[in-house]
Amino acid sequence: MITLHDYELSGNCYKIRLMLGFLGVGYTTRHVDFYPGLEHRSEAFRAINPLAQLPVLDHDGFVIRDAQAILTYLASTFDKGGSWGFGTSPRRDGEIAQWLAFAGELTGSIGAARLHDAFLFELDADAARRRGRELLRILDAHLWFQEREAHGWLASGENASIADIACFPYVMLSEDADLSREECPSVRRWLDRFKRIDGFRVMSGVFPTR
């Protein structure tokens, strides 16, 4: 059985819900009152994840934290021989790992500015926004070349990977952090493409494309 320690408005939790939806794997959620309850900082929750972060996945008693790590684990477990995760080619594996790390950067910039604007967390939101904008521009350039040289996904190959899932939520939610995607047309097309993958599901603030 899979249990996701979940908070509906968290982009990182959304990554896991997206992945489970694409894989068609059933699961239950346990609601963590991230805001305003700050339950993730409670002693009880820190017994589950000492980093006091969401999401956490419990698969038959195996407990794993960190969105990117959970995506990797789910791909290896439920998508054997598929193309969501590692194993297609060494080069693609490297690309996926590179963009998983980039997803972490998005959390630290766009995700942080969103925490400030929408959840009133105290942090340097302008610095986070500046970094977020740099990352969006880098992403836009990469995707423009991927549309020409590959298939328009973050890593090479015909299909999307867990790297796309990991980067999607905070890019999609960038306007919550007052970051427009107007100057990034390739990013906007990639978001549209991503939303058309079978099994895509929305979250609050994310509209369907079809």
Binding site: R181, E182, P185, R188, R189
Partner: peptide
């Protein structure tokens, strides 16, 4: 916009 910006079923800003 570029012509390729107007991808099928896309709304370009």
């Amino acid at each position: 916009a570029s012509s390729t910006d107007l991808a099928p079923r896309h709304v370009f800003h």
